[in-house]
């Protein structure tokens, strides 16, 4: 173990120490971008409709949920943690907020107010779940994999129980009031894409321009050193899980108006998609360093693959998952690290 003073100054001054290699121009950083550009070319060649504005917006809008969750996930993974529960959490938040909104509709006259309260509830619930994870992990000293594997089951089971195994559906009036949050657009760009953009920018600033972001990276690269450097490791970790919870809340707020319902299949396997987006985007699974821009590109890349597969029928539908797997591995290869 290194002695305490040196890392203190390093981390405190500019946080450059753990990230130095990525400051220089590095072609491997552009692996995900190269992958995405290649995919866009292939997509256009296979079907001219691929390159239309509408299709582009469809893809970006549906990426928004996973993308926003991925940004929160990026912080957790950089700090050396993991969260397997995000898909189930999204499902439970969706179910909870729909039930709340349906119940409020009876007593609150304005549907817009009901929807506003529902959204607030979703964010609070997400943040609360995230902090609960963080608390169990830091104070309870349980491995994040186990904590979140546990809640993965708990959240989905509770939702299934609330839904009686069926679907929880938003009342029609509320559905209309809430619809624009998913289906509306501003300057020709759908609302979820704007939110995705805002969360990405906020995430990038938080990670690269604040003390919190530097602490997250320091903890991920060496927790002991960070502790010696007087970083409040437990608090920072707690906050990363809380942040991810809020991201899941935001994603759910955008998701609910799409179908106006939550069912036991809501958010199924989102955790794997979010983790894949983060890793494909060039974040180290071991923690310590990561990129928000890469994560965003990773998330877009994953949904572009399935979009292209849906727009063509040259490959047997039985092989869709195999194509996705090949592309993910190929992109990861493009941005691999030197040994």
């Amino acid at each position: 173990m290194p002695s305490a003073p040196t890392p203190v100054t390093d981390v405190r001054q500019d946080g450059a120490a753990p990230r130095k290699p990525s400051r220089r121009f590095d072609p491997r950083r552009f692996g995900p971008v190269v992958g995405l550009v290649l995919l866009l070319i292939v997509g256009t060649a296979l079907n001219p409709d691929f390159a239309t504005w509408d299709n582009l917006m469809n893809v970006l809008t549906r990426t928004a949920f996973i993308g926003i969750i991925s940004i929160g996930m990026c912080f957790v993974i950089i700090s050396g943690g993991i969260d397997l529960s995000v898909g189930s959490m999204a499902a439970l938040i969706a179910g909870g907020m729909i039930l709340l909104m349906n119940a409020l509709a009876a007593s609150v006259a304005s549907p817009v107010a009901v929807v506003g309260l529902g959204m607030l509830f979703a964010l609070l619930l997400g943040g609360g779940f995230g902090l609960a994870h963080g608390y169990l992990i830091t104070r309870g000293r349980i491995e994040p994999f186990i904590v979140t594997l546990g809640t993965l089951g708990i959240f989905r089971a509770v939702l299934t129980w609330l839904a009686d195994g069926g679907a929880i559906t938003l009342d029609n009036d509320l559905s209309e009031a809430y619809g624009p949050v998913y289906y509306g657009s501003l300057l020709g760009i759908p609302v979820p894409v704007w939110v995705f953009l805002a969360v990405s920018v906020a995430g990038a600033v938080l990670l690269n321009r604040t003390a919190f972001g530097r602490y997250v990276q320091a903890i991920g690269s060496n927790e002991q050193v960070a502790r010696f450097a007087a970083v409040d490791v437990d608090r920072v970790k707690l906050l990363t899980y809380g942040l991810l919870g809020v991201c899941v809340g935001i994603a759910t707020v955008l998701y609910v108006p799409r179908l106006g319902s939550a069912s036991p299949t809501t958010g199924l396997l989102w955790e794997l998609e979010a983790i894949a987006a983060v890793i494909v985007g060039g974040t180290s699974f071991k923690g310590g360093e990561g990129r928000i821009a890469g994560t965003v590109i990773g998330a877009v890349l994953l949904s572009v693959i399935s979009n292209i597969l849906n727009l063509t029928s040259i490959i047997s539908v039985y092989l869709n998952a195999a194509v996705q797997g090949c592309v993910i591995i190929a992109v990861a290869f493009l941005q691999r690290r030197r040994p």
Binding site: L259, S261, T265, N310
Partner: peptide, 18 residues
């Protein structure tokens, strides 16, 4: 579309584009 509402939504969007 895996007997799933969300997947059906996405697949249909792409069918409609195509």
């Amino acid at each position: 579309a895996n007997w799933n509402r969300d997947d059906a939504f996405k697949v249909t969007q792409d069918f409609l584009t195509r």
